[in-house]
């Protein structure tokens, strides 16, 4: 990839060969060859799955609050950070599993408190107002975390093995922690869809989202449902923050970057749909990973932001959302 000048377009020829596996651009002949082995393919694929599942697990948190309130909670990334930070601190005093469990509970309580203090007493707040409130909250949480934990990088220990252990799957080497993230994400998605479909609490939450006034007339306490949705998404965010901490590290400001990617994925999939978020997350992650093979790494984020913009212009209701449903909500 060094000092090439772009040859005329019609001279690009894409050739797939088994060996050697790399992208070479020959300036002399004006030929771009993309050569990829099975090994490189699966390595990119798993890297993409790792990115994608991390984005998806954050996107799910966005979706839960959106589902009950119709708003986007821009402090979602901070829940991820808080979960990781609490678990790391508690892990000094207790084994990993209770530390994570306690961290999730603490973050859920914080989520509930935030809702009760800043959001509950507002009478029919506008979307814009809610966005500003949640952005403000995210800054507030970040600053508090900075004073609590300092600016250092921390992480939980790997659940299995250590920093250098890896498992070979389809000739790709991946960290066992990636499997943990995938597993936890799938469990969360399954339990959530069961919860929203079959439990009365889940149905009540969905009712509030569909029509708040009608739900209130049916005797559902809409305000409690909103509190509960904040708790739920805080808990999921915290759990995500714990399982991904060994891979991505936890720092007081790590939530922002995750929230942007999570939001991209939530919109890409169609707001409010957790299954779609996973699919969209994987799609974005895999596109990002494979893009590295063709363009320099520096363009990775440009690609995901471009995708977000295209989606917002072309299909604002997301890849998997229906336009009628999106038309009914305020956002």
């Amino acid at each position: 990839m060094r000092n090439f000048s772009y040859p005329p377009f019609y001279r690009y020829i894409f050739r797939y060969r088994n060996y050697p596996a790399r992208v070479t651009i020959y300036p002399e002949s004006g030929t771009l060859t993309v050569q990829m082995t099975a090994e490189l393919f699966s390595q990119y694929l798993f890297a993409g799955i790792t990115y994608g599942i991390i984005y998806a697990i954050v996107a799910i948190g966005f979706n839960i609050i959106y589902n009950t309130t119709g708003i986007i909670n821009f402090a979602q990334g901070e829940f991820v950070m808080l979960g990781g930070m609490f678990a790391i601190t508690l892990n000094n005093f207790m084994p990993l599993v209770p530390a994570i469990a306690l961290a999730v509970v603490i973050t859920m309580i914080i989520g509930a408190l935030i809702e009760m203090i800043f959001i509950r007493w507002l009478d029919s707040p506008s979307i814009l107002r809610m966005i500003i409130i949640t952005i403000g909250l995210s800054i507030l949480i970040r600053e508090v975390a900075l004073h609590f934990w300092g600016e250092g990088v921390r992480s939980l220990p790997y659940f299995n093995g250590n920093e250098i252990s890896s498992i070979k799957i389809f000739s790709a080497q991946i960290s066992p922690q990636v499997l943990w993230v995938i597993g936890v994400c799938l469990i969360i998605v399954t339990l959530l869809s069961l919860f929203f479909r079959f439990t009365s609490l889940g149905l009540e939450m969905r009712a509030c989202s569909a029509n708040r006034l009608a739900a209130t007339l049916c005797g559902i306490n809409a305000k409690n449902m909103v509190t509960f949705s904040f708790m739920l998404s805080a808990g999921i965010g915290a759990l995500a923050g714990c399982v991904m901490s060994p891979i991505t590290y936890t720092q007081y400001d790590c939530g922002t970057g995750l929230a942007i990617k999570g939001f991209t994925v939530a919109v890409l999939g169609g707001l409010g749909n957790s299954m779609a978020a996973v699919a969209a997350g994987l799609l974005l992650g895999i596109i990002e990973a494979f893009s590295i093979g063709i363009v320099p790494l520096a363009f990775q984020d440009a690609i995901s932001i471009t995708i977000l913009l295209i989606i917002l212009f072309v299909r604002p209701h997301g890849l998997f959302g229906s336009s009628e449903a999106a038309g009914l909500t305020e956002f």
Partner: peptide, 13 residues
Amino acid sequence: TDLSAVVAKLMVD
């Protein structure tokens, strides 16, 4: 947060 894809790209060289 993760650079395994670029590592894969370099590693084949």
